[in-house]
């Protein structure tokens, strides 16, 4: 349970308000815990009762179509805006807490660095803002530049960078100081395929060292490749949460190639699920869990010969579209 606090204090934009847990950053607590988080801008409801928990050390996908409230939720979690109601804890402290920000790396969706600084100078500036020891600045900047593939452009002004290179630099800045939580808001939106691959590699490396990654994206393929759990957001509230396997297995099925079935087989096998055909294949959907061996046995008992059995899972995209259709 969260400590009792007023909603207004939960995310003071300056992060000046401190909860009793501030500084302790309770290691046992979840990386993010939000309860009934809502945000209203005059007549527009941007976020409506969002509750979610992100465990430490996982890659969490925050998915949703444009305008579903993803970026608003990120702003509330980072203390850039105040919730209209509800509350959130990040790394065991009130969302937006100033000291906890030392443990958070953030790549905003829309941002710019000082165009008149070089890439290395931007990183040194953020080392300074993070209050890293001065002797660590050069190595920390060099490591970040290397990690995001900008070592060769370290001395170039940011103003000469393409959007993709600025996004790489943004990721490098977010990695500084080995943060416990990295919030990436659409991190690959301006990147080419090589850049996207590099980001996926970095995310996996972050998970390997025990960091939590909060990935805000509308690219389902990206989420499918790196996320452990996801929350799907639509019209300001969560419509599904779980591991990728859970979400995709919600309507399991099987694809079969069978010969020698007698007349009337459909009626006798109808109880296993909904039957459709796709060329030479038979598709069974809406099956109960663990019923595939029983199905195969039933086909064999009817005299059918089972040539192939392929388990069917929904793609994340299919599941995503299905959930949004029901909204």
């Amino acid at each position: 349970m969260l400590p009792a606090r007023s909603a207004d204090r939960a995310a003071a934009p300056d992060g000046g308000t401190r909860s009793p847990a501030v500084g302790a950053q309770a290691p046992g607590s979840p990386a993010i815990h939000a309860i009934n988080l809502s945000k209203r801008y005059r007549d527009t409801v941007a976020l409506q009762g969002l509750s979610m928990t992100v465990a430490r050390g996982e890659v969490f996908g925050f998915l949703g179509p444009n305008g579903s409230g993803k970026t608003t939720a990120v702003k509330l979690l980072l203390g850039l805006a105040r919730p209209t109601s509800g509350e959130a804890m990040v790394l065991g402290a009130a969302a937006g807490d100033r000291e906890t920000r030392r443990q958070i790396g953030y790549l905003p969706e829309l941002f710019r660095f000082q165009s008149w600084l070089t890439a290395r100078e931007v990183l040194i500036l953020h080392c300074r803002l993070l209050r890293l020891p001065r002797h660590r600045w050069p190595a920390a900047a060099a490591e970040a530049l290397h990690a995001v593939g900008l070592a060769a452009r370290a001395g170039d002004k940011v103003g000469t960078f393409s959007k993709g290179m600025q996004q790489r630099l943004g990721l490098g800045v977010a990695l500084l100081g080995e943060p416990a939580l990295i919030v990436l808001d659409e991190p690959t939106s301006a990147l080419d395929p090589v850049g996207r691959h590099d980001v996926r590699v970095i995310i996996r490396e972050l998970r390997d060292r025990g960091a939590t990654v909060f990935l805000n994206t509308h690219l389902l393929e990206e989420a499918e490749q790196v996320c452990d759990t996801v929350t799907i957001l639509s019209k300001g509230h969560a419509v599904a949460t779980g591991t990728l396997a859970d979400l995709k297995a919600s309507r399991p099925g099987v694809r079969l190639q069978v010969t020698g079935l007698p007349v009337g087989w459909r009626q006798r096998l109808a109880a296993f699920g909904t039957w459709t055909t796709d060329g030479d294949w038979l598709l069974v959907s809406d099956m109960a869990a663990g019923k595939v061996p029983d199905l195969v046995a039933a086909i064999v008992s009817l005299g059918g010969r089972v040539e192939a059995v392929i388990p069917e899972r929904q793609s994340l995209e299919e599941r995503f579209l299905e959930l949004l259709e029901h909204e």
């Binding site: 934009p13 300056d14 992060g15 000046g16 980072l78 850039l80 100033r98 000291e99 920000r101 030392r102 958070i104 953030y106 905003p108 829309l110 941002f111 710019r112 660095f113 000082q114 953020h126 803002l129 993070l130 209050r131 943004g170 800045v173």
Partner: peptide, 16 residues
Amino acid sequence: DSGVLQTVITRPIRRS
């Protein structure tokens, strides 16, 4: 508006 402050303000620094 340009997004420069978003990268600074999320660091452990007071707005003041």
